[in-house]
Design a binder for these strands. Sequence first.
DNA 1: CCCAAAATTAAGTTTGAATTAAGCTCCCCC
DNA 2: GGGGGAGCTTAATTCAAACTTAATTTTGGG
Lengths: 230, 230
Amino acid sequence: MRLLIVEDQVSLADELLADLGCAGYAVDWLADGRDALYQGASEPYDLIVLDLGLPGKPGLEVLREWRAGGLATPVLILTARDHWAERIEGLKAGADDYLTKPFHPEELQLRIQSLLRRAHGLANQTRLEAGGVQLDERKQSVIHNGKEITLTAAEFSLLRYLMLHPQQIVSKLQLLEHLYDGETERDSNVIEVHVNHLRRKLGKAVIETRRNQGYLFNGLQTGNATGLAL
Amino acid sequence: MRLLIVEDQVSLADELLADLGCAGYAVDWLADGRDALYQGASEPYDLIVLDLGLPGKPGLEVLREWRAGGLATPVLILTARDHWAERIEGLKAGADDYLTKPFHPEELQLRIQSLLRRAHGLANQTRLEAGGVQLDERKQSVIHNGKEITLTAAEFSLLRYLMLHPQQIVSKLQLLEHLYDGETERDSNVIEVHVNHLRRKLGKAVIETRRNQGYLFNGLQTGNATGLAL
DNA sequence: CCCAAAATTAAGTTTGAATTAAGCTCCCCC
DNA sequence: GGGGGAGCTTAATTCAAACTTAATTTTGGG
């Protein structure tokens, strides 16, 4: 999952970068509004955290231009507590959620998790769960048949990406672009290796490969494709 | 479905080529306006993605000449965000849709899907559906009588082509030209084999053979050729 | 600075979708 | 009604994609 933080206050940005990095996100950081306008639209971010008080170009303006250009990426805005009206303006301009500064880092984490679920049509569930697999985002582990299985950072973020895209084929290229920043080789087999590890830990059936197309997260459907009880 | 990408920025073109390839399109790429002018009109593309800032000959000029020459292929233009007026010029010159750079590859995919449906008179439907067959483009599978049937990449792109041409006869040669790039043998029986596979999975009636003419996608009309209730 | 764990690269193997090929069937036309 | 061509079907082939294991590099903690 790739995130962009647009925040000019260095100390805060630093902290967020570290926090979100630990949570298994690939995070980029920009401090300038003009840079953000361009990069936010060109790199395939899954979510953007946007401070409204920015040099270069005001955050609200950046957001409006993104939306005018058709950018659909979820945006969470940060506003100072004493600029009350900005939140309304922000939502009008197309923000999906907001947080007033100062805030607790955990609060941001939860908002991000929730916003990502919502953006992928999983608004109803409070944690990522599908086909007998429960993802524990705090412990970066998985509960499967009541048993807890710990994942490495790479396995965790790969699985999370797949679980956020249920019922759709995710190409290897898409995974490379959304799990890694900037440029990783197109012909690396990292994804295949981690898929292999996940299958060892969770069982072969969890991730289905569609040759020439990509991977499909299936949960643990045992022959009952509807997911309904029989 | 054969697409032409006309884009001089190599890294972007590379990525689009890979992305659209995964989505089951046969994609050609040109970087020069003069080449595009010729090839876009001579090869049977189903859609053209045209960057307006091109070496050789400006994209707008290429588009105008295509339209003047009677080319009806849907064209989606790519414009730089800061060349706002170009979009209007582009639409006037005969473009069918536009996207401002930068953009996310996923966004382009959606636009292409939508534009293809629109160009084939299916503007009203949000997903390809006919005669009890629903095509799920994200999953590259089909829902038939509420049951999901998975398709291979080749089966998927063949079925998609047929579903985009409902109630019309599609010749085998046409299929060869539109599903494969450049030159595949004229006397290969690939199409027949894949049609056979699709019939096995979806039932004989789905694809009707019109001897010496081609194939006709029928959905699943079970003896009631009008599609009306009896 | 060193060590262990994790991530990635690399190399060799397996797999299965796509294509070719070959023989059969069904139609159409004489 | 039978000859020929178009289309169907099954089986064999092929070759790149995906898998697996092991080696190497990177990372982070002590």
